[in-house]
């Protein structure tokens, strides 16, 4: 069974620690070149097609800024 996923990032609360980036098994996530109002580069889906909705990024996120969605395909 295969899954397709997507994440929604609370950009203003993201501190750009990049722990999610390091823990993404599909290289979906990266830190944005842009920064939020606090000056942090925030995480986003650089390669959204890769996302399987595994939730690893949200699991390790210290600031609970990532919401995960997933569908079976």
């Amino acid at each position: 069974m295969a899954f397709k996923g997507a994440i929604v990032v609370d950009i203003e609360k993201c501190k750009g620690c990049s722990v999610c980036v390091a823990n993404c098994p599909t290289q979906t996530i990266a830190l944005a070149k842009k920064v939020n109002s606090k000056g942090y580069p925030y995480c986003y889906m650089e390669n959204p097609d890769n996302c399987t909705g595994c939730g690893n990024c949200a699991t390790v996120c210290p600031d609970s800024v990532i919401t995960v969605y997933r569908v079976k395909i």
């Binding site: 397709k4 996923g5 997507a6 929604v8 909705g53 939730g55 949200a58 699991t59 609970s64 800024v65 990532i66 919401t67 995960v68 969605y69 997933r70 569908v71």
Partner: peptide, 11 residues
């Protein structure tokens, strides 16, 4: 994909 019925994990 980003629809309430597909939610798996959040705050």
């Amino acid at each position: 994909i980003i629809k309430p019925e597909n939610f798996v994990y959040g705050k």
